[in-house]
């Protein structure tokens, strides 16, 4: 080998005048570079470049290119310009691939256009559609179950709140009813105790002296008779216009020139205004030996007038209880 190289060396060196590379010359002079640049590095580095295997087959099928796309050759004139660009790299490969670059580049272009298209579409879909449309099925199922659980909790909350609302409502209604009842009772008791004015059907009973003044006992008899007949509110007024509400504690005394009702001095004629059932009270006053007969026998006169509406307006001041306490 050494002898052969020395033999070839001077022959070549004489022609090239290049003494530094005698060792490379003996083999094939230029073909190793071309083939190594074209085929071998592809095989070696093809696996490094993360592209999948069949590079050997591809490099061997250089001459029968682009079986699927023969028609694209004339449709893509640009690849020739593009192919002129890369000669910085493998010049020989680019020159050799020139005829099929058009079709392959068209394919690449189509693929990349598709990539850009889908990329934009996907980006747009993701950015515009934040809803569940792009969510996977199992994620949807999980979201659905989450929502179900949440709905259940919210339903329980609703039920509890409705229950408390119902309780509060019933409580409020109960309070309102109790308040109404208490108000009604207070009104009744106020009328009975003489602290509230009253209005209703009733009578006016006038005692007019004829021969001698009407005694307080007669007036008291009339009041008792009216109470027994169901009178609910009464007042007595004298001839001077003074009016006294007749309640449970009212007393009647004979006084000079008239009667004293609960300490108030009244002069005749007296008129009792009473609210109650007019027929019953009139009958009670007119019974034989009753109020009317007694007053007439004592030298007086009783006039009873039935009224649709009478007003008992006189009030009795409420009295503070000092000893009695309610028992609850």
């Amino acid at each position: 080998m050494a002898g052969a190289s020395e033999r070839n060396g001077p022959a070549e060196a004489a022609g090239r005048s290049d003494g530094s590379a005698p060792g490379r010359d003996p083999g094939t002079p230029k073909s190793p570079d071309a083939t190594a640049g074209g085929a071998d590095p592809v095989v070696d580095r093809g696996e490094v470049s993360a592209d999948d295997g069949p590079t050997v087959r591809l490099s061997t099928t250089d001459d029968g290119p682009t079986v699927p796309l023969p028609g694209d050759d004339e449709t893509v004139p640009i690849p020739s310009a593009e192919a002129a660009e890369p000669p910085a790299g493998p010049v020989s490969a680019g020159r050799r691939l020139l005829p099929r670059l058009t079709a392959a580049n068209a394919m690449i272009g189509v693929l990349l256009a598709l990539l850009g298209f889908t990329l934009v579409v996907q980006l747009r879909t993701n950015s515009t559609d934040a809803s569940l449309e792009t969510t996977r099925q199992e994620d949807l199922v999980r979201i659905l179950s989450d929502l179900d659980a949440q709905e259940e909790r919210v339903r329980q909350d609703i039920a509890g709140l409705e229950e408390s609302q119902r309780q509060l409502n019933s409580g409020a209604e109960g309070r309102q009813a109790a308040l109404d009842e208490a108000t009604r009772r207070a009104d009744e008791l106020g009328i009975l105790a003489g602290t509230l004015p009253a209005r209703g059907p009733g009578l006016t009973v006038s005692f007019m002296p004829v021969s001698k003044p009407v005694a307080a006992s007669r007036v008291l008899d009339a009041v008792q008779e009216l109470r027994g007949a169901g009178a609910e509110a009464m007042q007595i007024s004298g001839g001077d216009g003074a009016t006294v509400r007749i309640i449970a504690s009212t007393y009647f005394l004979d006084a000079e020139g008239g009667i004293s009702v609960s300490g108030r001095r009244l002069t005749g004629p007296y008129m009792i205004t009473v609210i109650g059932d007019p027929k019953t009270m009139q009958t009670a006053l007119n019974i034989p030996g009753g109020v009317v007969a007694s007053v007439s026998g004592d030298g007086g006169n009783v006039a009873i007038q039935e009224r649709e509406v009478v007003d008992v307006t006189a009030l009795s001041p409420p009295k503070d209880l000092q000893h009695a306490r309610p028992v609850s």
Partner: peptide
């Protein structure tokens, strides 16, 4: 699919820079 295509594109760019870019290989790998 977009991510896979991006992978293929980056692989192609790398192969191009390495000087070993192959059209068919790129298309098929893509």
């Amino acid at each position: 699919a977009v991510v896979a295509a991006l992978d293929a594109v980056f692989g192609g760019v790398r192969a191009k820079l390495d000087g070993i870019f192959d059209d068919k290989q790129f298309v098929i790998s893509f």
